[in-house]
Structures are given as structure tokens and as C-alpha cells.
């Protein structure tokens, strides 16, 4: 008589948890790496996007359009499989970080742009009249204020990114979802494993989301 799957799952719980939690660690790694990359890219393109010259604006706008209009899974496949075809073999982790980073950068470009543009034009003109160049004005007046505007959306982006990294399993990055799939292949306990996977994602994303919400409230209060 085959044992009840739930009983089996209970017996295997410690093993399964240890496997899944190592995957969760990789999830956090990918999230962190992609987050930093996305911020860097987003800042650069946001500045390009708000320049008076047409060419930088156009380049940035095209970048945003393309990388936001194509599914991130497709972008991931282009980077992992596509580049391999051209001879550049990346390991799954790196490919995932680059893929999510570039994709996230397109999203953050718009977030940062909104932050920059939210700073009233009059202040920028006052900065100009003090003899500041556009770059100086951006650095000294706009950016410090824009940071406050931008933090909540940035936080929400991080939460979304954490969940998106599940797709990295499709390129065999050893993160949580991938570990889950291999565990299911080995144990055939799909329901139980995926419930565990869901629980671990919740354990990671809910506190982060809560933190972001509190941040939003605190920032909102600060400006009254």
C-alpha cells in the first residue's frame, strides 16, 4: 500500500525545506544583483530621457519601449540561449541577473524620469540663475528631492522583481522555483512541494511589501 502523499511529504519535510531554502537564497541573490543593475541602468537612461537634445531622448525612449514591450521570459531566452548560439555561454545565474537587470532598467527609467520631472521647473530655473549648469542642477537640486519621490515605486519594483525571478527557473538557474521543479521530479509530491514553494515566496515577499508600505507612509508624512 503506497503511503499517503501528505504523510510522505511530512516525513521528507526537513530535506525538502533545506533544498528549497538554498534555492531561496539564490532567488535573493538574483533579485539583489538584478536590482542593483536595474537601478544603474535606469538612472543613466532616465537622465538621457530628460536631456534637451533629441538623440539621447530617442535612444532612451526606444530602449524603454523595446524592453518593456517584450516579455521578460523572451529577453531571458535571448540572453541565455541566443548568446550561446553566438558563442557567448553565460551561466544561468549571470544570464538571469543580466536579463532581469536590463528589463528592470527599462521600467525604472520611467520611474526615475517621473521622479525627476516631479521637481518643479521653477527650482531648476532658480538653480540656473545661480550659475549652475544643467548637470549641476540635476545633481544638487533635483536628485536629492527626486530620491524621496522615487523610493516607494523602487520598493514596489523590488517586490515584483523577487517574484519575477521565478522565471529564471526556465534557464535552469538554481533558484527556488527550479529547486521546486526538480524536487517534484524526484518525489512526485507536486501539491506539497509547490505549496511549500508558495509559502517560502510569501515569507520573502510579504515582509518586504510591508516594509515598503511603511516607508511610503513615513515619506508621505515627512513632507507635510
Amino acid at each position: 500500500m503506497s503511503p499517503d502523499p501528505w504523510v510522505r511529504a511530512y516525513d521528507l519535510l526537513p530535506v525538502m525545506l533545506s533544498v528549497l531554502l538554498t534555492g531561496a537564497l539564490v532567488t535573493l541573490q538574483v533579485t539583489a544583483g538584478a536590482f542593483v543593475l536595474a537601478i544603474g541602468i535606469g538612472l543613466v537612461f532616465a537622465v538621457l530621457r530628460t536631456m534637451p537634445a533629441r538623440l539621447p531622448r530617442l535612444i532612451a525612449a526606444t530602449y524603454v519601449q523595446v524592453f518593456r514591450g517584450v516579455p521578460v521570459l523572451t529577453q531571458l531566452f535571448v540572453i541565455y540561449f541566443g548568446l550561446a548560439e553566438l558563442g557567448l555561454r553565460l551561466d544561468p545565474l549571470t544570464a538571469a541577473i543580466i536579463g532581469f537587470g536590463i528589463n528592470g532598467g527599462a521600467y525604472l527609467t520611467e520611474v526615475f524620469r517621473a521622479g525627476i520631472e516631479s521637481i518643479h521647473q521653477g527650482q531648476i530655473e532658480a538653480a540656473y540663475m545661480l550659475g549652475m549648469t544643467r548637470m549641476m542642477g540635476l545633481r544638487i537640486i533635483v536628485l536629492p528631492q527626486a530620491v524621496r519621490v522615487v523610493l516607494p515605486p523602487l520598493g514596489n519594483f523590488a517586490v515584483g522583481l523577487l517574484k519575477d525571478t521565478a522565471l529564471a527557473s526556465a534557464v535552469a538557474a538554481p533558484e527556488l522555483t527550479f529547486r521546486g521543479r526538480t524536487l517534484v521530479d524526484q518525489t512526485y509530491l507536486s501539491t506539497q512541494v509547490y505549496l511549500l514553494v508558495a509559502a517560502i515566496y510569501l515569507a520573502m515577499s510579504l515582509p518586504l511589501a510591508h516594509f515598503v508600505r511603511r516607508l511610503e507612509l513615513r515619506l508621505g508624512r515627512g513632507r507635510a
Binding site: 502523499p5 517574484k163 519575477d164 525571478t165 521565478a166 522565471l167 527557473s169 522555483t177 521546486g180 517534484v184 507536486s190 501539491t191 509547490y194 505549496l195 514553494v197 508558495a198 515566496y201 510569501l202 515577499s205 510579504l206 511589501a209
Partner: peptide
């Protein structure tokens, strides 16, 4: 709960998980 997990996980639960 639904927003706290990736959509993929939800899909797996429905496609694979419901078979039990």
C-alpha cells in the same frame, strides 16, 4: 496571498498541484 507569490507558482499549483 495571491499577490505575494509569483504567477508561475500559482500556475504550477493549479496545473500540477490540483492533480492530487
Amino acid at each position: 496571498v495571491v499577490r505575494g507569490m509569483p504567477a508561475v507558482t500559482l500556475l504550477f499549483l493549479i496545473y500540477f498541484g490540483l492533480t492530487s
